[in-house]
Design a protein around this nucleic acid. Structure first.
Length: 448
DNA sequence: AAGTGCGGGTGTA
DNA sequence: TACACCCGCACTT
């Protein structure tokens, strides 16, 4: 049955994302060698798809997926096989205040997953349950990875029949948040138990429990440096620093503009506004803070469970933008208190509505940020050509991202700018915006 | 602690 | 034979 289904799907899916013929199967003795174009990494591969990634693609190297995939032994050391674990939901089918359901990421480790299912729902404290994936003839969807020369071949079999769990990043982020929160605020044993559950499972994907770490600056009172160096080293500030680090990694680029004008993303208006912001900050002469590059990409096709995807880009044009140059220096933040950091000053930004699909441009160039950086949440630092806060472009509207709500902006001189002057045109040159035109959405949202 | 990859082993169709 | 799945181990994060 599975074989028959696969055969049908293979026939239907004759081309890959980049247009390469996919008349191959992961089990073929010989895979295509004359691949002219590799695919962009797919964060949410679904259905019977095949992709050919460059062996330089870090995400592909690590066989990453935002689905919760566990290793499956297929007794073939040349082909790595992974199967989907599904999604963890609340047995009570509870909803958050905003109506959204709880979709937690199953722990990959068997032991951790068992432990996870003994915990309670972070929303209603009800029991959690694991919805197994049965999208491949009643069995879990399987992903196959095979490294062949300069390429990494990927094949997915089956269509996920369950909602998307939170991403690994989100799960990790919330674990950290929860640890911080737990450390800051003493809690009741019951609440503690639930928070432990949240730490294990990641919290629900809703606006109540995925907080924004950095709030309006008006609320801040005590400063801390934030480029890996804390001014104060007391535990509370350590926690705050962690909190901010997460925000740094996950939230940059979620500017208020982006949030408020998501419908403009990808438009000339968006581009011009971003440019204007850059110019305004330059004019202000405030070059002490970081510059943040917002790059919105959304090349994914609507998914059954969520209509937006991230990290799905076209590689053919990406190279033209991969030398983006921006600087990110110290992030100076001010914090009212640890509690405010975690609670009152925390803000959620609504999901970017489906209107962002308006910027779906399969053949358009995007950023030079690799998906790898998204997963790692680290910076691209290449003083030859780039210095990029790299997690910024993960702007999948599905995810309850953390957004930096910044009303004051700093700007750090680009290593490639002339002296201390902000030269957007120069920046644009280095970032190949002329090539990318307005496909690369570029904004500067320094933080104070 | 959890994630990841590998590989031995078993059960089923 | 192919596939799913369990388990333990080693290594990484």
């Amino acid at each position: 049955m599975l074989k028959a289904a696969d055969d049908i799907m293979d026939q239907e899916d004759s081309t890959s994302q980049s247009g390469e013929m996919t008349s191959w199967d992961i089990n073929d003795i010989k895979l295509p060698q004359d691949v002219k174009q590799t695919d962009w990494f797919q964060e949410w591969p679904d259905s019977y798809v095949k992709h050919i990634y460059s062996s330089d693609d870090k995400n592909a190297q690590r066989h990453l997926s935002s689905w919760a995939m566990r290793n499956t032994n297929n007794h073939n050391s040349r082909i790595l096989k992974k199967s989907c674990l599904g999604v963890v939901v609340c047995s009570n089918d509870c909803s958050a205040a905003d109506g959204r359901k709880i979709y937690l990421r199953p722990a990959i480790c068997d032991k951790a997953r068992q432990k996870q299912q003994r915990k309670c729902c972070p929303n209603c404290s009800g029991p959690l349950k694991l919805i197994s994936c049965r999208g491949h003839g009643g069995y879990p969807v399987t992903n196959f990875w095979r490294h062949e020369g300069p390429f990494i071949f990927f094949q997915s079999k089956g269509a996920h029949d369950h909602p998307r769990p939170e991403t690994k990043l989100e799960a990790e982020a919330r674990r950290s948040i929860q640890k911080a929160h737990t450390a800051i605020a003493p809690i009741s044993p019951r609440l503690k138990r639930c928070r432990e559950a949240e730490s294990l499972t990641g919290e629900m994907q809703n606006q109540e429990t995925l907080p924004l770490f950095l709030s309006n600056q008006e609320n801040y009172i005590s400063p801390c440096s934030f480029n890996g160096h804390l001014i104060d080293k007391n535990p509370q500030e350590q926690i705050i620093n962690n909190c901010l680090s997460l925000a740094k990694n996950y939230s940059f680029g979620r500017s208020s503009y982006l949030t408020e004008h998501s419908q403009d993303i990808g438009s000339n208006k968006y581009y011009e506004t971003c440019k204007e912001i850059g110019s305004r900050e330059h004019d202000s002469g405030d070059l002490s803070g970081p510059s943040v590059c917002n790059m919105y990409t959304d090349y994914g096709e609507p998914q059954p469970w969520n209509k937006n995807t991230a990290l799905e880009r076209n590689p053919c044009t990406d190279k033209c933008c991969n030398s983006s140059a921006l600087s990110l220096a110290d992030l100076h933040c001010e914090i009212v208190s640890s509690q405010n950091c975690m609670d009152s000053s925390i803000q959620h930004v609504p999901n970017i509505p489906p209107t962002t699909k308006a910027c779906y441009h399969p053949a358009r160039p995007t950023t030079g940020l690799s998906g790898d950086d998204f997963y790692e949440g680290k910076l691209h630092v290449n003083y030859n050509s780039s210095y990029i806060p790299s997690s910024f472009y993960h702007l999948s509207s599905e995810d309850p991202y953390l957004i930096m709500n910044s009303t004051h902006h700093h700007q750090q001189p680009s290593p490639l700018s002339k002296g201390n002057e902000w030269d957007f045109e120069e920046e644009r040159k280095y970032t190949n915006l002329d090539y990318c035109n307005n496909e690369m959405f570029f904004s500067l949202y320094p933080l104070r």
